[in-house]
Design a protein around this nucleic acid. Structure first.
Lengths: 230, 230
DNA sequence: CCTTGAATTGAACACCCGTTCAGTAGATGG
DNA sequence: CCATCTACTGAACGGGTGTTCAATTCAAGG
């Protein structure tokens, strides 16, 4: 209705909504969707249970919205990252793969709760919601599969099966968030280096000394992560 | 109604006990520990909820026993597998690693429910129970870590960090059970071959043509899994 | 000022939870 | 044939569940 936006009677709508989502995310991650009650979520926000229904039609929608938001943000963030600077990167499969690897680790370590919920609570989604999340997940997997397929076509990667490799590698990378904690002996950069080293090798990319005779100039530039040895 | 009231009683203890555990495992895997009620489990078995308490002190113990049984059986089965025939295998890290890889995949594909419950329901364990399972899990991880460490000491594996590699590789291997289904294009053997190929490369073991000049005779014997290409 | 209307309360609804336990059915040992 | 034992029933307990809704609160618009 007409001109002036922000017709805020009442007041806390723009605050309470996000706070509910944040509390739900935290609690779902810690205790699991089924084990968390609407009253617990409300209590965390400092509101009665009935108030939650101003912001979500029901508990299931609350879970689904959190998971969809996470998957969509993941896809958007990667879409932005993959095209940011570097026209060379866009065509070199090794560089693309390294970029994906480091992006995935960084993104997932920054959002442990979202990650945890998004792959632990799949079975608590109703059928339609499950299918929607699965579609988004498949889209993300295809991003990696495309890189692997391109690299194999160019003869840079050696892979018996890119679909299986995609699933295996994503499982490996996502697993980081189950054990990594800030403040340990390894920094996030160390972890990125270690995983990239393993992942690189797993698809058949050698460490390439560009000055060596017979260098194809296509291998990975390998730094030795001395701090990460162990 | 009179006939149904006459319930079979007597010495069905040895039947009902395992049936309860089987039903609980199935339901926990499908819907999650918190989402499954004792009445559902009882219904699956065909008894009243109260009857479950002849076989378990409470719901938590039911979950814990399932998880502990799974972890202990995993360790026992691997302990038997690792020493079965082949004194050469016991000293060759590549052979040991291949054996572990194929064992892990096979074992986990055979027990999807146990696997699912054992790593999805960790957060529903009470503190003491959690610690007990964590100990068993760490024991299993150490089995792989030992192999990797031995291989690196012998100069066969190239790894920046065996602890991180262990976690990464186990996450990759365990992930198989989230997507593999019998009756697809890939057989279990195909999957074993593909994963072994990737895993082998990831720790720096080359495919070794024993007849080639400069062969160390220590690389992996690589069969090309033609059926598994894709 | 008064009206408006969104944000929130608090009680209620119908149902489900894990667990306990007195009572019972039925096979078994004497 | 009876006493015993054990697996099991069925009802009950206190409390928690997701969700609804009339009533209330209270900042802002006119």
């Amino acid at each position: 209705m007409v001109a002036t936006m922000a017709r805020k009677t009442g007041s806390h709508a723009e605050i309470t909504g996000p706070r509910i989502r944040a509390a739900a995310l935290r609690l779902f991650a810690r205790h699991g969707y089924a084990a968390v009650s609407m009253r617990q979520i409300a209590g965390e926000v400092g509101v009665q249970a009935g108030a939650l229904y101003t912001y979500t039609p029901d508990k299931q929608a609350l879970l689904f919205d959190l998971m969809r938001a996470h998957m969509e943000h993941l896809l958007e963030t990667w879409a932005a990252e993959r095209v940011s600077d570097g026209a060379t990167d866009a065509t070199d499969p090794v560089a693309r793969l390294e970029r994906f690897t480091r992006f995935h680790i960084r993104y997932h370590l920054d959002r442990p709760d979202e990650v945890f919920v998004s792959y632990m609570e799949l079975r608590n989604l109703e059928q339609d919601n499950f299918r929607a999340i699965e579609t988004l997940r498949r889209q993300y997997e295809n991003e990696l599969d495309d890189i692997l397929a391109a690299g194999r076509t160019e003869g840079v990667f050696e892979l018996p099966n890119t679909k299986v490799a995609t699933r295996g590698l994503i499982a490996m990378l996502t697993g980081v968030s189950t054990w990594f904690r800030d403040g340990g002996t390894l920094s996030r950069g160390d972890v990125e280096d270690i995983y990239w080293d393993m992942l690189r090798r797993s698809v058949g990319v050698q460490c390439d000394d560009a000055t060596a005779p017979g260098s194809t100039g296509r291998g990975a530039v390998c730094t030795s992560p001395s701090a990460a040895r162990g």
